[in-house]
Design a protein around this nucleic acid. Sequence first.
DNA 1: CATTCTCTGACTATCTTTGACCTATTGAGT
DNA 2: ACTCAATAGGTCAAAGATAGTCAGAGAATG
Lengths: 156, 156
Amino acid sequence: MRLSDSIEQFIKELLNEESTEVELKRNELAEYFGCAPSQINYVLATRFSPDHGYLTESRRGGGGYIRIVRVVQAGSQRLMYLVNDRIGDSLEEEECLRLISQLKEQRIVTADEAALMASVISGRALAVPVPDALKNAMRAKMMKSMLMTIAARNRD
Amino acid sequence: MRLSDSIEQFIKELLNEESTEVELKRNELAEYFGCAPSQINYVLATRFSPDHGYLTESRRGGGGYIRIVRVVQAGSQRLMYLVNDRIGDSLEEEECLRLISQLKEQRIVTADEAALMASVISGRALAVPVPDALKNAMRAKMMKSMLMTIAARNRD
DNA sequence: CATTCTCTGACTATCTTTGACCTATTGAGT
DNA sequence: ACTCAATAGGTCAAAGATAGTCAGAGAATG
């Protein structure tokens, strides 16, 4: 079996038993599997990306760590549908607003949060000299990023 | 756990129980934690800066001390200061994160909102081929836009 | 074979901790 | 008042401890 698959499986077992998040030391893990530390980054990038339903955060320096949070779960199906299927690589402002408004009606986000989301993807907030096509690409990424964050808290 | 984190936590507990300010002896604290005195300065610089919502003052010589004050400010006042003075035309990701974290500590935004804000200004959310200078200009606008939205509901 | 996926290593970036040296304040002795 | 020793805290650079990035070699796949 491939090294990457072993590491992936190892991490997923930790996530199953313990809960929805694990914290590990990159160097320790690499030593355990007898591989280069950067291999761990490869596994994170290819198997624990947001598109796979995971969020990661890390710190360097003494006492550094890597934390992996599993986001995909029952209650957030609607959100994961939006992230994985509904939203593509580009999204116009009007469409963003429609989605946000739907989420509010469905009580997935509060009115305050909806207002926050709407304000940040607005034309006013993105008023810099960048082509519209790129702005819409950013809107798609911004929306996905926010929805993932919301999904990460709705773990039920 | 990191030494710096322990010291940070220790000081924050003092600030919670007693009031909005504490006075400490640098050398005593260093001895208590068994570290170099300058370690204390490091903790103050990285975790109790004005951006983190704290002010510090100190005196040298006999009877010297370090005083740490947690800044309390009305929500809308704080937000308007950020929008009008603190945030200019450009803001790096790290600086955004510092401000967001401070707003959370001061209970001006909820933890959920802070997470939402952090996710949308992150490098991941803005990963399109646009120069960093422009991304930072956008971050400034995005932050202002979000803060104004929050201010619009915080009538205090 | 060509392509795509894995894996490594050299280089880089970031965070923490310490120690040597510097500056300010106080108080005793003159 | 003046001086100096004792007592604080401040600064900064260097070392230590982690993690990230990226190009290219190697392996698997179709």
